[in-house]
Each structure stands twice: as C-alpha cells, then as structure tokens.
Design a protein around this nucleic acid. Structure first.
Lengths: 230, 230
DNA sequence: TCGGCCGGTGTTGTGCACATCACGCAGCAG
DNA sequence: CTGCTGCGTGATGTGCACAACACCGGCCGA
C-alpha cells in the first residue's frame, strides 16, 4: 500500500505520519472493531519501533476521538453511535456546503480524472459489492473533493469530521441496517451528478449535491432497512 | 491561578490538561511571543515533571498549530499572519453563526450572570485599558457563549479555531495597528447587544451579532489604524 | 581571501527500565 | 455460602540515558 524507502531517507515526521495514517485507516475500515484493545507493545513490535513513538501516534488518535486510553487498563477503539453522532453529522453537512462556497478552486484535470476513475470503480462495485472496498473508495473521493476548496482550515476540519464519522456507515452495513447494493448505486449516482455539476463549473452545486447525499445517507442509517425488503 | 491539590489525587490526565491549558494560555496571551523557542528541559523543570509528559503536551500544541517542533533545532511558537489567517477567519465567521442555529440551548441564569459580570469588567477596562486583561476577558466570554449550543463537535471546532486566531488581536494591539480603547468599547457594545438579544430569547440574533463583530474586528486589524487618528 | 570540511554543542527523537494503576482470582474470616 | 482482603498480572504513564540531527565556529587548503 505504502511505498517503502530506506530508513536513511525517512525522517521522524514521515514515520509518524505513516503510522498515524495506517492505524487511522485500520480503525476507520473496521479492521479494528470498536472496543478492540490496542496493545502498545504488540503494535510497536509490528511496526518495528519502540513504545515511545507509537504512544505519540496513539495520543494523536485519542485527540481525534478514535481511541481512548485508560491508565492501567488499556487503549481501546472508541465506539460510534448514530444518535450521538447526529450533531457531528449536522456540522458535517454545513462544512460540506461550505466547500463549494469558501475559496472554491476550479477543478483540475487531475481531479476530474480521479473522479472518473472513482466512478469506474464504483460501477465495478455495483456488480460485485464489497463493503471495505466501497468504504475505501468513499474516503478517497471525499478527500479528493476537499481539494476543491483553497481554505486549508476548512479542509482540515472537514477531514477530521469525516474521520470521526466514517466508521458508522461500514458498521451499518455489517449490521444489515443499510443495503450495500443500494448504497453503492446511490454513491455512483452522486459521483455522476457531481461530475455533471463540475462540468458546468458550478462548484456550489457540486457541494450541495454532496451535502444532500451525506444527509440522505445519514437518514438511511438512522432509519434502517424496512423489514420485508431485504 | 489553578488550585493546588495533593499529587495523590491528581491523575495523569489532570496533569496533562493543566499543563496543556497553561502553556496554551501563555502562547495565546503572548507571554511567549511568536518565534520563541520553548526548551523542553526548562519547561519540564519548571512544571516539576520529566520531558516525557511535557513532550506529550507539546505534541498536542503542535497538532493545534500553536508550536512547531524541528528535530535537532527546537520547538518554536508559531507566528500568526493576518493574510494567512484570512481563510481561518472566514471559517470562524460561519461557525459563529452556526452556534445560534445548530442545537441552540436557552441561556441559563449562570450564563447571563457571567455575561453581566463580563460587561462590568469590560466597563472597567474601558476606563483603564489593559491589553492582556482584555484578551483574557475576550477568551472567557467566547468560551461562555459556546455553551449556548449543545452541539459538542461545533463547540470543539469553534474553540480550536478561536485558539488558533486569538493571538492576532493582541499582536495587533502591541503593533499599534488597532486602537485598544476603540476595541474595548466595541467589545463592550458587543456584550450589551448580545445581552439584549438573549433577553428576547433570539439566540440566532445573538450569534449573528458575534459574527458581525468578529468580521469587523478582523477588518480593523487588516486595515490598520488610519494615520492622523492616533 | 574564499570555500569547504569537520568537530563541538545543544536540541529533539528513541529505547528501555521502572513506577503507577486497575482488574481478577485465590484465600480466608464471618 | 458470602463478602472482603490481599496479591499477582498486565496495562499505561514516567524518568532517564542515549541516538540522531542541525547549527556554528574554527581550521585548513587552494
């Protein structure tokens, strides 16, 4: 997944960022389910470092709300609950709309190409649903679309909010509270609508589309599948 | 400033929070000017701990954008520049308005009392201007008004944004780019207007007033005092 | 005189041993 | 049988010594 380099060219910050991103993805993709205990010693051994820099990563993850450390007990992956995250989602909606309003930047050909490739992958996922691959694709698209605003603070906070809420969708899929096929189709439609909006240069419209889909996705998770459908 | 307790009743998290809040305030109140080098060893000695827990605090401050550590060089207080913080201010404006729109809670008598006391202190500061005391009062009022929303995520992010931009005002005062007396009067008017809005129960209006004053404050700093006035 | 090399010095980053804490279980008194 | 007390075990938190690194000044050679 990540390219390997000789340690001589890896600075301390690079190692930190790599460990942080790796553990963050594991948590967001439910490789570590909520409640899982993360052993500092085992993780340090796995990554080939001592506990000291690994604890620094865990402290960052704790500040982001992904884990929680308790002295003498352990470090645990936090749980995500739809009711508790309702307000977080409210804020996400507002920030999503702001991405198209504060310091918007015209989409570069690279961004459009990435969206096109994402749409292709989404079409593949429609025929062969895969929750984890879908969650990963969703995250990549979200981060790519953040580049449509030049407001760094907005990007940073929107990403933090996304990270905090990303797991709830995958959890809903595993709990069969949402239908994976339906979710994949909706996501594909969202990308296509966004591509159309960007083609006309209407960045605010693209942002409103994303806001609408985030809202609808949350409603589907909160409501759950109607009995008798699946 | 902070109450002392026997170490036996102080948990690790308490110590962390205390050090973090203390260093954060020192930076935000310009006790440590931008560019100042923070010696881990000296700070650890001052707080009576070893470098290990202190480094944890510095890492948190770095994630909040208040300091920056460079391997082999030192840990430095970051600088704040009006031009660079323009986008951060844009986001602050939006969040300030959201405080009155997302999950508003009726002001408790305690909040109203705190505002009234803040107004009294502001009137004192009008007659005897004091930049540092004003900045401290401003921060207290800001945090108090955040309690007018039940949206925890919004509170957290609004506070983080405030912390990141708080120093620019005090810096502008010391650079004589804004007039302290004028700023104090404007702040007093803001509190009184907010009190009037809260008295009618219009939380959104109170939020819009704050948004307007944040915007005007930023404009005053960006424009600077007109020559021939001061 | 100028440029590059090189070691001294002070800093942050890392590894490791120990302190501190919480939980669980065995043992025992009532 | 019940409840509690004490200890063993394993976790996170802390202190300390050393490694890695950057800056700076002197030195040497061209």
């Amino acid at each position: 997944m990540t390219l390997d380099m000789p340690d001589s060219l890896l600075t301390a910050r690079d190692r930190f960022d790599r460990l942080h991103a790796d553990l963050r993805d594991r948590i967001c993709l439910l490789d570590y389910a909520p409640g899982t205990r993360l052993s500092e010693e085992k993780l340090a051994a796995e990554y080939g470092v001592s506990r000291t820099p690994l604890r620094r990563v865990l402290a960052r993850l704790e500040s982001e709300g992904l884990v929680q450390s308790v002295h003498g007990v352990g470090t645990f992956v936090t749980d995500v609950d739809i009711e508790e995250l309702a307000q977080t989602y409210q804020l996400r909606l507002e920030l999503a709309e702001m991405v198209g309003r504060l310091s918007p930047v015209p989409p570069s050909p690279e961004i459009l190409a990435r969206l096109a490739r994402a749409a292709d992958r989404a079409r593949t996922l429609v025929t062969a649903p895969d929750p984890r691959a879908f969650a990963q694709l969703n995250m990549e698209v979200f981060l790519a679309r953040l580049s449509l605003t030049a407001n760094e603070a907005l990007r940073e906070f929107a990403e933090r909010l996304y990270i905090r809420t990303a797991r709830i969708w995958l959890k809903s899929v595993f709990a069969s509270r949402v239908d994976l096929a339906e979710e994949t189709e909706m996501f594909l439609r969202e990308i296509e609508e966004v591509e159309a909006a960007l083609a006309t240069g209407d960045l605010h419209a693209a942002a409103l589309i994303q806001r609408a889909h985030i809202s609808m996705s949350f409603t589907r998770m909160k409501t759950g599948r109607r009995p008798g459908r699946g």
